[in-house]
């Protein structure tokens, strides 16, 4: 047993222990902190499995932005939790436990039944990597071979933001999301919000650019850009834009819109929906990714900012 195996066993046990603790702990706030740590450790597991693209997304979304959403929810629930003391009846709790345990058992059973070696399309993907001029197989699958899934995923993001906005009261509709953050303009948070974004924007764009040949891509880069935007908003240096703003809505539909337009172009000029002409595959994909990183950054930032609460004046 070499040192890497020992490390993997320790990592797996810590993740399992942390998962159980996150479920068992009584306070919502503690559970949230446990979940963020859990996400970061799961990202380490993805690295051990050589799935660096997934690890980046897990760390950025699960650990970072998802953690912020959950912390905000925990803060909102704190007052309500103190009032509600009622507990579910033992029968309900027992049924929930049995249901969860049987789902876990079914999943474990299904994984044990998988054929060995598992059926895989990975060699085909690697063999056809030259078709797009990019060498990162994950980007090839996401943007070309299964481009349809990625396009619909971006439409889902758009629907999610519409869902969040629809929680606004009639009076606040068209206004700015979230509270106006106030911070000491000479304080340490405002200092960080001035110092970090230049570096963060370079890192976000680099992750997008390097995604063609190395782990990375529009989603991970967009998450970094979104966090920079949120940092500036939380430090009180900028306000959230009103949701009625035209340029904001244009950015929100830019990614899926361009994806759809190029897909329809493939149907019109080429053999099929989303078929790229071989000579222009890489420039077209890069164009879609540039539009998508803007859409993803704006969407993730606005999802965290929440429903419109204030009129736009």
């Amino acid at each position: 047993m070499n040192i890497a195996t020992v490390f993997e066993i320790v990592l797996a046990s810590v993740v399992l222990g942390l998962a159980i603790w996150t479920i068992a702990v009584a306070e919502t706030y503690s559970a949230t902190v446990g979940f963020v740590a859990y996400s970061l450790l799961v990202a380490l597991i993805w690295v051990r499995l050589d799935a660096v693209d997934v690890a980046l997304t897990e760390a950025a979304i699960g650990g970072g932005l998802g953690g912020v959403v959950l912390l905000g929810a925990a803060a909102r629930l704190r007052d309500a939790e103190a009032l509600t003391v009622e507990q579910a009846s033992p029968i309900v709790r027992m049924s929930a436990a049995i249901l969860s345990a049987s789902i876990t058992a079914a999943l474990a059973f299904a994984i044990l039944l998988l054929p060995d070696p598992a059926p895989t399309l990975a060699p085909t993907v690697v063999a056809n990597a030259g078709a797009t001029g990019m060498t990162n197989p994950v980007t090839n699958v996401l943007m070309a071979f299964r481009g349809m899934d990625t396009m619909l995923e971006k439409v889902v993001l758009l629907l999610a933001i519409v869902g969040v906005w629809s929680l606004a009261s009639d009076r606040a509709w068209g206004g700015r999301p979230g509270p106006r953050h106030q911070a000491d303009p000479n304080g340490v948070l405002a200092f960080l919000a001035r110092l970090l974004p230049p570096a963060g924007i370079v890192v976000g764009v680099y992750i997008l650019w390097t995604g063609a040949d190395h782990p990375g891509g529009a989603f991970q880069g967009g998450a970094v850009l979104a966090s920079m935007w949120l940092l500036v908003i939380m430090a009180g240096l900028a306000d959230t834009p009103p949701v009625s703003s035209r340029w904001l809505r244009l950015i929100l539909v830019a990614g899926p819109g361009l994806f759809l337009a190029i897909g329809l172009g493939g149907l019109w000029l080429g053999p099929a929906f989303l078929s790229y002409p071989a000579a222009f595959a890489k420039p077209l994909i890069l164009g879609i990714e540039v539009a998508m990183i803007l859409t993803i950054a704006a969407t993730l930032g606005l999802l965290l900012a929440g429903a419109p609460e204030r009129s736009s004046q």
């Binding site: 340490v188 948070l189 960080l192 970090l196």
Partner: peptide, 20 residues
Amino acid sequence: ISIWMLALLAGATVSQLIAR
């Protein structure tokens, strides 16, 4: 080195905020 610098910056900022 830049990873270390970013961790330094984040650590210093967060501990200042918590201490405040």
